[in-house]
Amino acid sequence: MTNTNMARAQLAQGEEAIIEFNDVNKWYGDFHVLKNINFSIKKGERIVVCGPSGSGKSTMTRCINRLEEHQKGTILVDGVEMNNNLKNIEAIRKDVGMVFQHFNLFPHLTILENLTLAPIWVRKTPKKQAEEMAMHYLERVKIANQALKYPGQLSGGQQQRVAIARGLCMQPRIMLFDEPTSALDPEMIKEVLDVMVQLAEEGMTMVCVTHEMGFAKTVADRVVFMDAGEIVEANEPHEFFDNPQHDRTQMFLSQILNH
């Protein structure tokens, strides 16, 4: 059933896959954290991954830029296989931006330096040009006036918007979001989601682990539900929310939507 859903979604899109999981398995010691993941994401697709904690959704996302290694199966990103080849990994990481739950800004650098670090050292962009680009993205996330402050002087919502801008400064082809709003106070979640919606509307390929179901309904092309290391169900948002196929999905949705 899972496979038919996926196949249908793939047919509907009919475009080239930019991320492909083929039979991916991963263990932490004895713990089987990812089980036979088969999934592909097309260029420009917005994927929302949800599921109970410990279901492997963050781990799967982090395999895409190899912050986690998988032990079996293949992952192709932009046609490049993610294996122990350090050159490949570094090349893919240039094109894959990542936003973390805890922002992970560099506290010893100013906001501007946080944004220009990777363009200058990885892309070899001249400093002046990198700064112009950084200011451009800071304006887009509406915190250009904070450019010379340090991360510790900003609120959580502001820090997360800086983190998104930092990812965008590398002009990535894919953006990964690992629970970007989970560590934020409720009143700050909206400002971060607004930036993400805007980004989605511009056609960025996005993989987003989140529990923000409103966000999933508005922007996702497909919602992926994971449980116990497996992809249980993947479907278009209205199908996923209105007509969940699997018991586990139904239970999960009833738990997070009715409180």
Binding site: N65, E90, M98, F100, F106, P107, L117, W121, V122, M170
Partner: peptide
């Protein structure tokens, strides 16, 4: 924190770049 190493890795910095630019300045301080 592990997140600092991960953020540096995720940007595509090499091992020495992430050590010299991100980790050591914080660790030595």
């Amino acid at each position: 924190p592990k997140g600092q190493y991960e953020a540096a890795d995720a940007m595509g910095l090499t091992y020495w770049q992430s050590m010299i630019l991100v980790i050591l300045p914080q660790a030595l301080k």
